[in-house]
């Protein structure tokens, strides 16, 4: 529990420090966050589908990255950042900020579960990973508009 709260503190600090950066360019910031999530998904997904050998530490790191990205993610969508910078953010984010925040909170919850499951070996991790992975599509269905 001690280690976990340490991690939470680090996560909070990371979010705070990126927030000040976000004030300058929230679009670039959130796009970078999503790139990190994509890279983490690739690593975790390869292990969950058996394409890469399971490594508990790597799996935990990957889903932890997703977890820290999900926490506070809606902060990177302030009013005024609706357009520009090749953003693929859908107008629905601002018309339904509550729904968007809920989606993001769900990812935070499910990635926290996956972080715990990573310690339990491949079979435990697999289930938690796919439960978490559902969030990506669910949110992109409503809140992202493809631009390329």
């Amino acid at each position: 529990m001690h280690i976990l709260s340490k991690f939470a503190a680090v996560t909070a600090l990371t979010v705070m420090s990126t927030t000040s950066f976000a004030a300058d360019d929230p679009i670039a910031a959130r796009q970078n966050i999503m790139k990190n999530v994509g890279a983490a998904m690739k690593a975790a997904g390869a292990m969950a589908t058996g394409k890469a050998e399971y490594d508990a530490l790597a799996a935990e790191l990957a889903v932890r990255t997703i977890n820290s990205s999900a926490i506070g993610f809606p902060m990177f969508f302030p009013k005024g950042s609706e357009t520009g910078g090749d953003t693929e953010a859908a107008p629905a984010i601002w018309s339904d900020m509550e729904g968007f925040s809920k989606s993001s909170a769900q990812l935070a919850t499910d990635s926290a579960t996956a972080t715990e499951a990573a310690k339990g070996g491949m079979d435990t991790f697999k289930g938690a990973f796919f439960a978490m992975a559902k969030n990506c599509k669910a949110c992109h269905e409503k809140f992202r508009i493809k631009k390329n």
Binding site: G45, C136, H140
Partner: peptide
């Protein structure tokens, strides 16, 4: 089958229902 692209992006919009 899964909705994930090779780079672990996902389908979005109406393609989610199609997938």
């Amino acid at each position: 089958e899964t909705g994930f692209t090779p780079s672990y992006d996902t389908f979005g919009g109406s393609m989610v229902a199609v997938q």
